[in-house]
Design a protein around this nucleic acid. Structure first.
Length: 219
DNA sequence: CCAAAGATGCGCT
DNA sequence: GCGCATCTTTGGG
């Protein structure tokens, strides 16, 4: 079950890569168990855009953003780890925002994910187990200390093309960007068929939120 | 100190 | 289900 995305795959424009990553499956080995989740939501960030960490300048902490395409950039903020991947052009990257558990071989995987990412009250439903950039890192046991500035490793953590093609993507604005920091750029992408498992559903917002649909024929 | 590419509970619709 | 207040941890100023 192991056909990691080739390095070349990450050598694409951030928005293209963000769209291409939708539907791909992350696989992380925890002890002897593979934990797998299909990416359903991503965001693109560019060196020139004021919301990107890279735009704040090169530092040791942010150096992964300036390393070759396909380098993992992880950072810790607001009580959780987040996963990014560098892409074409120094300082450009894609943030993986949410996923859904993908179980093609292991029935115990969900229990392990629940253990790694417990809900404070009750049990986290399967479709919300990886519904957030820090939640998915928790459920897959991905840590800054272990993966920041590293390339993917087919033996421990990689992303795989399982042949899934989304029918439609939602394109909308990124979340958590403060005013004046290019908050209106439409660089967030969601698999329409899994919109109920994303961090926040733009289609059902009462407030005015920009979104548009991208059909499969345009991908 | 406090902002940060967040998450959660609670009250309301 | 939505919006807002509140809690969260860490590194840079």
């Amino acid at each position: 079950m192991s056909k990691p995305l080739p390095k070349k795959f990450f050598h694409q424009d951030a928005q293209i890569l963000a769209k291409q990553l939708i539907g791909k499956v992350m696989r992380s080995k925890y002890h002897d168990m593979w934990l797998s989740a299909q990416i359903i939501e991503t965001e693109a960030y560019y060196l020139a855009d004021k919301s990107s960490h890279a735009s704040l300048g090169f530092t040791e902490k942010r150096s992964a953003l300036f390393m070759p395409a396909g380098t993992i950039y992880m950072y810790y903020s607001r009580a959780g780890d987040s996963l990014n991947i560098s892409c074409k052009g120094k300082g450009n990257a894609v943030l993986v925002k949410s996923a859904v558990p993908y179980f093609d071989d292991n029935a115990q995987m969900i229990e392990m994910m629940r253990q790694l990412n417990p809900a404070k009250n009750g049990v986290r439903s399967i479709n919300k187990l990886c519904a957030g950039q820090t939640l998915l890192c928790r459920a897959l046991n991905l840590k800054v200390k272990e993966w920041d500035q590293q390339p993917f490793d087919p033996k421990r953590f990689f992303i795989e093309d399982v042949g899934y093609q989304p029918n439609t993507l939602i394109q909308t604005t990124r979340l958590g960007i403060s005013e004046g920091r290019d908050e209106d750029l439409p660089y967030r992408f969601i698999d329409y068929d899994y919109v109920d498992s994303c961090t926040s559903n733009p289609l059902r917002k009462k407030k005015e939120v920009f979104w548009t649909l991208i059909p499969a024929s345009d991908l």
